[in-house]
Design a protein around this nucleic acid. Structure first.
Lengths: 138, 138
DNA sequence: CTAGACCTTCCAGCGCACTGGAAGGTCAAG
DNA sequence: CTTGACCTTCCAGTGCGCTGGAAGGTCTAG
């Protein structure tokens, strides 16, 4: 299978496929006499796996670490489980942070709705945003 | 005030302050005869404003757009309000996506807990992750 | 033989917000 | 005069996951 066929079947661009090869995610395939990459069927599954893993929030580096294990003949289950829990932690943390930012923004939106533009002085730059923190002295 | 003093009072590095000047966030200050930057007091407030705005989730480009307005003598209230609502939209969307990813990962974690490592065949790479999508044929 | 669709390699850039380092200038203390 | 803390500019790199483009090779149809 040539690279453009693999691209069509995987939904990735040929650029991305070559990039994955260079990133050690996809093994270098054999070449035709003319020098073209000639992929086996399994390449489709491999790319699908990469996509699924990305969908699960794993980085390419993490996906590579799974593939390295698998390619060395080991079952990567324990590793995968650990990665999943790490990601879960990350995501929980980011969710918390984002929710905090959202709450702050909602507060600002409420303040903005009450702001009289004529009350803004140049030295404040913008009273809506400036008074996010209480200033010890003004 | 020299740049290191401003750095100390703003909690930023001198590198960052010069970067902000180059990014048109902080006006270029006058120089001493020796060529050193010599900041006025207001610079502290300006950097504090930038930090507050970043804390509200605004990008440097957005903050710049506010400062440009203010520096041109206009009250940026309407603009700021629009930015806040845009950010709120972005954040809500990201929260939704992250929550979806978290749910997917929780599903995977549950599946992983039930996985028998001996059931993994090499062709699957990893059954925990591979079966995220149902395959039409296997 | 030629057009053009595909392939190859290599290098470079995106966006974001910095950060690091080299090479050199300034200034106050001793 | 020297040391050393500070300052200057400029260039380049970080991480992430690609994406673009140039310059050239291969293969098929007509």
């Amino acid at each position: 299978m040539r690279i453009s066929d693999l691209a069509a079947r995987s939904g990735l661009s040929t650029k991305t496929i070559r990039f994955y090869e260079q990133s050690a995610l996809l093994p270098a395939p054999p070449r035709t006499p003319g020098g073209y990459r000639d992929y086996p069927e399994q390449a489709v599954a491999r790319l699908a796996f990469i996509r699924d893993s990305q969908g699960a929030g794993l980085s390419l580096a993490e996906i590579r670490s799974i593939l390295v294990l698998r390619d060395s003949g080991q079952a990567p289950c324990a590793h995968v489980t650990a990665l999943i829990h790490q990601r879960l932690n990350d995501i929980e943390r980011r969710l918390t942070e984002l929710a905090k930012t959202r709450d702050a923004l909602n507060g600002l939106a409420r303040r903005a709705a009450l702001t009289d533009p004529t009350s803004c002085r140049e030295s404040d730059i913008c009273t809506i945003l400036s008074s996010v923190r209480e200033k010890p002295r003004g």
